[in-house]
Nucleic acid binder design. Structure first.
Length: 153
DNA sequence: GCCAACGTTGGC
DNA sequence: GCCAACGTTGGC
């Protein structure tokens, strides 16, 4: 069992959107960064758990817990000219982008903010989220960091 | 392969 | 809205 953090802009697709979906699950498409893609495609496993993180908003932070459901699949939005995630250089014969389905597990009792995670930088050493200039939208979380962060709730 | 220019991310 | 940091592109 591995742990992850998934970033999402609440104005685009936030935690409330996920909760409103049938079975509270959604294909996590549109990832267009190779490092994030590699995590999605190669490292994640069915049943892994993930923090759902709100970025680019008034109060960035972790708002919920979700689960990775099933195996990696080719991201069909890459081949859709009408999609904002369309990638004309991605060849269906040799797909470049993948997705995973995520399912909401529970809403956190409160938002664990980026600000307080930064305050705990000593205990969370190595956490990519609080590294300078971090922009990864899919990142691994060490098991002890996972437990520590949940303990802040 | 280098690197400048450009576009994007995301906190503040 | 600003801007630092980063990834990608493309000329050479």
């Amino acid at each position: 069992m591995a742990y992850w953090l998934l970033k999402s802009e609440p104005d685009v697709f936030g935690w409330e959107h996920l909760l409103a979906r049938p079975k509270q699950s959604e294909p996590w498409d549109g990832v267009r960064n190779y490092q994030a893609r590699n995590f999605l495609r190669d490292a994640m496993r069915d049943g892994d758990e993930a923090f759902f993180y709100h970025s680019n908003c008034a109060q960035p932070g972790i708002v919920g817990l979700c689960r990775i459901v099933g195996e990696a699949q080719v991201d069909p939005t890459a081949f859709d000219p009408d999609s904002k995630y369309h990638d004309p250089k991605s060849d269906p014969e040799n797909p470049r982008w993948y997705l995973r389905t995520v399912q909401a597990q529970r809403t956190l009792a409160r938002t664990i903010t980026l600000a307080e995670l930064k305050e705990r930088a000593e205990a969370l050493e190595g956490l990519q989220l609080i590294r300078r200039g971090n922009r990864l939208s899919v990142m691994p979380i060490e098991a002890d960091h996972w437990a520590y962060i949940l303990g802040l709730e």
